[in-house]
Amino acid sequence: MALPVLICDDSLLARKQVRKSLPESFDAEFQTAGNGLEALTILRAQEIGLVFLDLTMPELDGIGVLEAIKAESIDCFVIVISADIQPEMKKRVMELGALAFIHKPVNEDKLHSILKQYGLI
């Protein structure tokens, strides 16, 4: 069964980059969100298995999304894909329950190995 996946990034290019970096064998149904608020609306209304989440976004940033997911016990995996690569940011993101923290621009091999590690491909 296809995995419901949400790609959340304010940049169209970044959303396409994520999509293109996923292996062909990855059976998913994609939705996209352009900021954190849009992402939360989708996450509250639907069952989403996996979220690819950007951090620096208008309206509500990725940290805000992670905090809401945690506070509302929304059941989904989150992989953060971020231009903000400071070690302290990674620490914060991991403490908030993200599966992984990947630097932008997204590296295909790194993404595949994380998906494999969690049995998503």
Binding site: S11, L12, L13, A14, T56, S82, A83, D84, I85, Q86, E88, H103, K104, P105
Partner: peptide, 19 residues
């Protein structure tokens, strides 16, 4: 959009160095 995203990534690298 493309230029903005490239700039965001470059900015992230510069901020990390500055930090």
């Amino acid at each position: 959009d493309c230029l903005q995203e490239i700039i965001n990534v470059a900015m992230g690298l510069a901020s990390d160095k500055l930090a």
